[in-house]
Design a protein around this nucleic acid. Sequence first.
DNA 1: ATATAACTGACGAACGTTCGTTAAAAATTA
DNA 2: TAATTTTTAACGAACGTTCGTCAGTTATAT
Lengths: 193, 193
Amino acid sequence: MKSNEIKEAALKYFTIHGYEGASLSQIAEEVGMRKQSIYAHFKGKDDLFLNVLRDAKETELTSKLQYFSKVDAENPEKDLYGFLQLIVDLFQKNEHVKFWLRMSFFPPAHLEKAITEEVVDIEEKVQVILEEKFQAWIDDGLIIKEEVITPTFAFLGVVDSIMLELVYGNDQKRLNDKIAASWTVFWRGVSHK
Amino acid sequence: MKSNEIKEAALKYFTIHGYEGASLSQIAEEVGMRKQSIYAHFKGKDDLFLNVLRDAKETELTSKLQYFSKVDAENPEKDLYGFLQLIVDLFQKNEHVKFWLRMSFFPPAHLEKAITEEVVDIEEKVQVILEEKFQAWIDDGLIIKEEVITPTFAFLGVVDSIMLELVYGNDQKRLNDKIAASWTVFWRGVSHK
DNA sequence: ATATAACTGACGAACGTTCGTTAAAAATTA
DNA sequence: TAATTTTTAACGAACGTTCGTCAGTTATAT
């Protein structure tokens, strides 16, 4: 399907140059057509963007939900560290995550509302799942007993910081060192000695 | 000085809309002049942008260096948590930090090299200072004895995650909860019981 | 033959930029 | 001090280019 090729090229340019910096002619050229031909597949730039956004959301959401659904949930150390690895893999495997991150935090002004809606939706779902997991681990005595929000938010913070490092991303060693450091300290901070 | 007014308006629009999304006519209108008049003060859009960038860098750098220079350095818990507060204050007091963050991670493609140079410069300087502090605290037995890079990077990770939350920033309560959670877990992870 | 999807051509609008000009302020000279 | 020159900072008009979009036409495929 040609629509998917267009979305793929659009994803690339939106990610690199942002909404305003990406031009339809560049996107069309990447696919090998004229920019006017895009209008046979999408109503316009906004429509194309929102389609890419929804694809990115689905990639992001299903990957994360799927991970926690097929994890045994009896070993928080393995499960949580595995989640960090998943983030890194996702980021390096497809462009969707970087696109998602950019648009989450610096959305085009006139689409901010629509974007924020989708972002909040994912955020809430992931947070709910994480809280359930942490609560179970706390009840099992695997994680320090305290308000469940504390380890949850702290872990989400680790995820965020790693994503930032991935975006920054010109230094593989630095990335690995930062992951190791954040994980070591986090785990020591939430687990029993 | 009119140049400063222009830079102020430019900072605002660059922060909200990014380099490509900010237009000289909007910036000029904010100041109360025509876009052509900007060329009496700056060579062009790039020149204006780079001037704003350098201002932002100076704000960012001097604030951080100054904080650590006038801190007594005998109480890591107070000093480090104070640094987090500084970040939050800086962010909410002036627009420079948000601008800096946006351009650090999503720079306009044709200025990426120049921007990365400045970003790396700050990053290295802050890292060096933090490592010195942590080393001293480790030697004094105030922080767990391990490679100094571990608490340093972990702390920088906490800073990053808070900055992301600040950018996201439509929820003051969530921000405070995230700071509290990240700090609690971090501190438990690097300090002795 | 009926869609679908590509094309050409053209549109108004906005972009960053350059030009020549004007009026006021500052510096220099008589 | 008064007259002159230079500098500064704004302007309107226009440049060439690119933008997103729309209309009409041709080619492709079911």
